[in-house]
Structures are given as structure tokens and as C-alpha cells.
């Protein structure tokens, strides 16, 4: 089994095919989209492949250490930041092929006009512990 992160970018990834901003969909289209995502996660729980799914606020704070005895420095949000991560799903699957299949399914979530968004999702494997037997 291998764990993969399905990463959803708002910016930074190539544009989706059906690239209409969500605030210009009809309320019914938004409901259909949300339902699709829920059904997808529920189906993965059924198949025993679901690990985690989270959505993130589009903007955050940048924080860094500022030396002994001083409070951390905060900055941002930076409007010019190229990439925005909208959320993720973590899956635990038998093969890379299965991970690609599921990412393709998730990317087919309906958007404007009830048509699939065809958005780009990034598929990243987790780094794991090395196997016991290597030589």
C-alpha cells in the first residue's frame, strides 16, 4: 500500500478546462459539486482507501523565528504568492495506477453547467519508512 496526497491548487496549476469561478455558478451547481466531493470521500471509506481530507482557507500568515527571546515575526498574506493550496485528500491505495484513477475521478467534480471541471490535481507520494529487507 502506498499513501498519496491529492493536492488541489487554486493558483499555480494550469487552468481547468471548465474554468468558471465558483461564485458564478448557480447555487444548485455548488450543491452538486459539494455532494460529489462528499460522495467521493464516502466511497473511498467504503473501499478502505480513505485517510484524510481537509480544506484550507485561501490565505494564511507567514511566520518565522526572529532570534532568542523575541516573538516570532509574522507577515503576509502576500497577494502576489503564486500558489494557493485549496485543500487535500490523502488516500492509501495498492498502486500508482489506482491513485491516478482516483485523482482523475476527483477532477471530474461538476462545476458550471453541471459539467466536469477537469481541474488539475497534483498527486504526490508520501515518503515512507524503508523496508526491512533491502539487500
Amino acid at each position: 500500500m502506498a499513501k498519496y496526497l491529492l493536492l488541489k491548487h487554486y493558483r499555480g496549476a494550469p487552468s481547468a478546462v471548465n474554468d468558471v469561478p465558483m461564485d458564478q455558478w448557480t447555487p444548485e451547481e455548488i450543491s452538486a459539486h459539494v455532494q460529489y466531493m462528499r460522495d467521493f470521500a464516502a466511497r473511498l471509506e467504503e473501499t478502505g482507501e480513505f485517510v484524510d481530507s481537509q480544506a484550507l482557507a485561501p490565505e494564511g500568515t507567514f511566520v518565522r523565528y526572529d532570534g532568542e527571546g523575541r516573538p516570532p515575526v509574522t507577515d503576509g498574506p502576500f497577494a502576489e504568492t503564486k500558489d494557493v493550496i485549496a485543500g487535500w485528500m490523502v488516500i492509501d491505495v495498492d498502486s500508482y495506477e489506482r491513485a491516478v484513477e482516483l485523482a482523475g475521478e476527483l477532477s471530474a467534480a461538476p462545476g458550471a453547467g453541471g459539467k466536469p471541471i477537469h481541474e488539475w490535481l497534483e498527486l504526490r507520494p508520501f515518503l515512507t519508512s524503508p523496508p526491512t529487507i533491502t539487500e
Binding site: G48, D52, D92
Partner: peptide, 13 residues
């Protein structure tokens, strides 16, 4: 390192 519900489903399937 998966949720218990996921493993329960994997086993029952």
C-alpha cells in the same frame, strides 16, 4: 497509519 474506519471497511470487504 490509516483511520480505524478505513481499516474496518478494508477488512469487511
Amino acid at each position: 497509519l490509516v483511520p480505524e474506519a478505513t481499516m474496518a471497511q478494508r477488512i469487511s470487504r
